[in-house]
């Protein structure tokens, strides 16, 4: 979002066409965009931190219930998704790198950026598909959040108050999944701009910021995975 201005540039003489009117240099513009993105990531981290805190509090209140309920999450599905997201982070970093070394108006270099973006999108898609299967299994077993929890009527007897655990599980992974979807939309947008040949070593702040966002999605999953799926 914070990089949105960069293609609204006024073309002024010998200046870089991607330079917006209120900036003096591309360096200033790119630095501002990146600082803006980092501040945005800070807000994302703080927002998720509330959910992580809720998780730790619930764990503190009902340790046995959390340990009992988390056994019903599929470690394998979570593990696959972790690897998929890590790999997508790598491809995204490579997309950014391709932009950093890309020559202006060079088809070949633009194609490389696009290749890595496609790979990243593909990983995001796989992540969501795996998530879909996980979610539908939970739905089937009535392991739903809060007052929709019916697993005990489906024959799964989990000690304590597991509807809280599944509430936290669905909220955390749901919000994370929502970020994945937003990330995919951003990547499609970046892909379209890359197709127009906008990105090169002279202008890659938008790719870089999209990358930062995507790595954040990965970062949150790195903590979600052990806490929800693995920890005993």
């Amino acid at each position: 979002m914070s990089n949105a201005h960069s293609h609204a540039a006024h073309t002024t003489g010998e200046h870089n066409p991607h330079l917006a009117h209120h900036f003096d240099t591309m360096g200033q513009q790119a630095g501002a965009a990146k600082l803006g993105m980092w501040l945005f990531l800070a807000t994302e981290l703080l927002m998720f931190s509330g959910l992580f805190l809720a998780y730790f509090v619930i764990r503190g209140f009902y340790p046995d219930m959390v340990l009992g309920a988390h056994e019903y999450l599929s470690k394998t599905a979570g593990g696959i998704n972790t690897c998929v997201l890590l790999f997508s982070s790598y491809t995204m970093a490579m997309a950014v790198r391709s932009a950093q070394v890309g020559r202006p108006n060079n088809q070949e270099d633009a194609a490389r950026i696009k290749k890595y973006l496609i790979l990243t999108l593909l990983c995001a898609g796989i992540f969501l598909v795996v998530k879909y299967f996980e979610y539908s299994a939970k739905f089937e077993h009535g392991m739903l959040p809060g007052k929709f929890y019916t697993a005990h009527l489906h024959g799964y007897d989990i000690e304590g108050l597991p509807h809280i655990f599944f509430g936290v599980y669905f909220f955390m992974t749901g919000l994370h999944g929502f970020h994945v979807v937003i990330g995919m939309a951003i990547m499609v947008w970046i892909y379209l701009r890359a197709s127009r040949g906008e990105f090169s070593e002279q202008n890659y702040a938008a790719v870089e910021n999209a990358g930062l966002y995507w790595h954040l999605v990965d970062l949150i999953w790195i903590f979600l995975f052990p806490l929800l799926y693995l920890v005993k």
Binding site: Y62, P145, G146, K147, H163, I164, G167
Partner: peptide, 12 residues
Amino acid sequence: LGIGIFDPAMGG
């Protein structure tokens, strides 16, 4: 949804 984080009736 009544997830039970803040609501004491649901264990929050």
